[in-house]
Amino acid sequence: MSLSRRNFLRNSRNALIGALAFSNGAIALLAPSRAWSLPLQMLTTTEAETLLKLTRHIFPHETLEDAVYAFVVRDLDKNPATHSLMDTGLKDLNRRAGGDWLALDSEEQFRHVEAIAGTQFFETIRSTAVVSLYNNELAFAHFGYEGAKGDGGYLYAGFNDLEWLPDPAPADSGIKPRLPG
């Protein structure tokens, strides 16, 4: 079987699949359905699940949905430059874990994550995640950032709605601009 044929078969059957666990969160409100799925190009499902869990250890946000961490896996999966690094890094991680890192309990998993901190494999995941994890609408909703919603300006949408501190003296602040016309 040719390599491309094998890849085609692999591509056609591999996906990272999950469901929103915290249905009352902001993300659930944005999501069209509770189930989510990420089609994979190069990674196997197990590799993708391992990378997702690894990313959760690197940037642990307890209540942040797996669906957001999946953006990191997506970006690692679609970057051909890092495939061999992911392959060897994951093998190394499993070897350190005595065969199956994903099967360990969380504390044991973390011990091995600490041990690989600073390696090229770890840094590639960290530097991808620090962008991918926080640069999407679901993360914005989770962390309370309004992103492109600010494009029209917050002048009439809460730019100064903080009420738990006294208002500044008028001379130290300023007045809203006149309405046009």
């Binding site: 917050y154 809460g158 730019f159 100064n160 709605d161 903080l162 501190l165 006294p166 208002d167 500044p168 130290d172 602040s173 300023g174 007045i175 809203k176």
Partner: peptide, 15 residues
Amino acid sequence: IGGLPGNNNFKVMYA
């Protein structure tokens, strides 16, 4: 020219 109206981040620094 008048000052800009202070936003939330300003309110915290100011206080």
